[in-house]
Amino acid sequence: VFVDDHLLEKVLELNAKGEKRLIKTWSRRSTIVPEMVGHTIAVYNGKQHVPVYITENMVGHKLGEFAP
Rank of each mutant, 00 (worst) to 15 (best):
G46H: 15
V37G: 03
T40H: 08
L12Q: 10
E13F: 06
P34S: 10
T55G: 12
M58N: 06
I54E: 00
R28I: 06
E13G: 07
K24E: 09
V37C: 14
L8Y: 10
L8I: 09
G64K: 08
V11T: 03
H6F: 15
V1D: 15
G46P: 02
L14F: 05
S27G: 04
F66L: 07
L22P: 11
P51Q: 09
V37D: 04
Q48Y: 12
T25D: 02
S27E: 06
K47N: 10
V33H: 04
K47H: 12
A67K: 02
P34E: 11
L14S: 06
P51E: 11
K17R: 11
P34R: 11
K10F: 08
L14G: 06
L22Q: 08
H61Y: 12
F66D: 01
G60A: 11
F66P: 01
G46L: 13
V37H: 05
K10V: 14
G18C: 11
M58W: 03
R29A: 14
D4Q: 02
I23F: 03
N57L: 13
S27L: 04
A16H: 08
P34G: 10
K47A: 12
M58L: 13
W26H: 14
K24S: 09
G60F: 15
R28C: 14
L8D: 01
I41T: 01
G46Q: 08
L12A: 08
Y44V: 05
K62I: 10
K47D: 09
Y44D: 05
V59E: 06
E35S: 10
G60M: 15
G18F: 06
P34A: 11
L14Y: 05
H61V: 09
W26I: 09
E35I: 14
I32F: 01
V43A: 03
E65S: 10
K17T: 12
E19F: 04
T31S: 09
P34Q: 11
D4Y: 01
S27N: 03
M36E: 00
T25M: 01
F2K: 06
A16Y: 07
I41C: 03
T55A: 13
K10Y: 14
A42K: 05
G46D: 06
F66Y: 11
M36S: 00
V52M: 08
N15Y: 01
K10I: 15
D4L: 00
S27W: 07
I54W: 00
M58R: 06
L7K: 00
L7C: 02
V3G: 04
T31K: 05
D5E: 15
E65H: 14
R21Q: 13
G64Q: 10
E35T: 09
W26E: 13
